[in-house]
Design a binder for these strands. Structure first.
Lengths: 246, 246
DNA sequence: CGGCTTATGTGGGACACCGTACAGACACCC
DNA sequence: GGGTGTCTGTACGGTGTCCCACATAAGCCG
């Protein structure tokens, strides 16, 4: 079978009540997001919100020195472009595609319109935003106190949760860029994890063999982010539609 | 003269249109916030939102190891307890009074009610939340890349902007706790700044003599947070009223 | 298949920060 | 006014990460 795309692959869209979803559905546009694509730059007026299905987008800040750091990631659990309904219309950070895939995009005006109807869409967007806030706060604490290896484990787990496969297509160089550390630091940490048999990698590919191993090595931050996300969004019933198998 | 408290000392409350302010005013309760008071703990169901006037509250996360780090600070520019209207009702972080002073507190139910009227209160709260998000994202990047001295300068400036005096009442030990670094690191950095003549300190007091010096030594993060806050909130007209003496 | 680009592995020296330990000094309170 | 608890200054070795340089190897493409 091919790859039947559906908005329901995005958890937020899948959770919208039928009436609200119907209003948006016609305007959802499936777009491919190639690795490295810049979705928005600092200060740029956002035009669209993106609901990733298979793609993963990294929100990160680039410093004057050129150094950068990811502050949060967005996959099929969320939406890129919260500034649209929060009222700022832009942010000082940028959004870059970290894992190639697809997303449904929606004109900012329409999302804002639906948000202002104060229905479940609004509630969902606000709750997701709070989860994002937690992710950023946790990243801040994690950057302060945890080792590169712990952070790598956290990052791998969070990324893994957003893709259907157990293999990530990304180079160590790019991972280093995400975490804001040296490439060699990733090489060393990944080497340790491979020696333990938790992962196996080759040029541009990282396969996770033992999730449990990574979870044991990761810092608490992974669990905190994960738990908070499900706490905030899980009690909202998913609109049940024929499950789309990918 | 004494110290005439007024809700208008808090920028958010001061920006509410008359009608909306009037609905809340009767329920605003002035409370003293002593240094170190725990406003809420991780996972605790919030009861009140706090609008600081002279107090400063630190949002921070305490790790399993006992180490901790501030993820954002809230002073007279903001509100403590955004989880109330974001829908989560609680957060994994805690809120502690970093500078003693006062705040107006408001029952969570009432804030949420007013928020749901979808007037300017909602818009203000959302915009402030976005500013808070930026602050957390910036803290994450800052923790990754900048030195203790740079971060101390950023922290001093942000704190200074929230108080009326140029002197902060806080020990180096507590500052270290905020930034999540060793106390000795602060001693050393503060020593440098004092030698340059930018600040002068004695047990539990830090006086800023040359703001410009601190600004030159601080990382860009201070300016980013500051600029974003004013971008998001400055274009909202402040309600001009006769100062209310309480 | 052979060459070239790009990713990964390794090592050495530098530096910032940590952990610990302890000495001095200030401010408060009895 | 003297004791006492707390805050601040200083020093030491240890460690994690950075910066730089270069070796090796994998995959792509002609």
């Amino acid at each position: 079978m091919g790859s039947p795309h559906s908005p329901n692959q995005n958890h937020l869209l899948a959770a919208l009540p039928t009436a609200e979803f119907e209003r948006l559905a016609a305007h959802l546009e499936l777009v491919p997001l190639p690795l490295g694509e810049l979705i928005y730059e600092p200060g740029e007026q956002l035009q669209y919100a993106y609901f990733p299905t298979t793609a993963i987008v990294s929100l990160h800040y680039v410093m004057e020195s050129g150094a950068s750091a990811e502050t949060a990631g967005v996959g099929n659990e969320g939406v890129v472009g919260i500034a649209l309904f929060m009222g700022g219309d832009t942010t000082p950070s940028s959004a870059v595609v970290q894992t190639a895939g697809h997303a449904y995009r929606l004109a900012g005006r329409l999302l804002k319109q639906e948000f202002n109807r104060a229905g479940l869409t609004q509630q969902l967007m606000l709750r997701y935003t709070q989860a994002l806030l937690t992710q950023m706060a946790q990243t801040a604490a994690c950057n302060r106190h945890h080792t590169v290896e712990q952070q790598l484990c956290r990052w791998l787990l969070l990324t893994l949760d957003r893709v259907s496969s157990r293999e990530l297509i990304i180079t160590q160089e790019l991972v280093a860029g995400m975490l804001g550390v040296r490439r060699e630091g990733i090489t060393e940490a990944a080497g340790n994890l491979q020696r333990e048999g938790y992962i196996r990698y080759r040029r541009g590919h990282i396969a996770v063999l033992q999730r449990a191993g990574l979870e044991a090595r990761a810092c608490e931050c992974y669990a905190v982010v994960k738990t908070e996300l499900s706490r905030l969004l899980s009690d909202i019933p998913q609109r049940q539609v024929a499950a789309v198998v990918n």
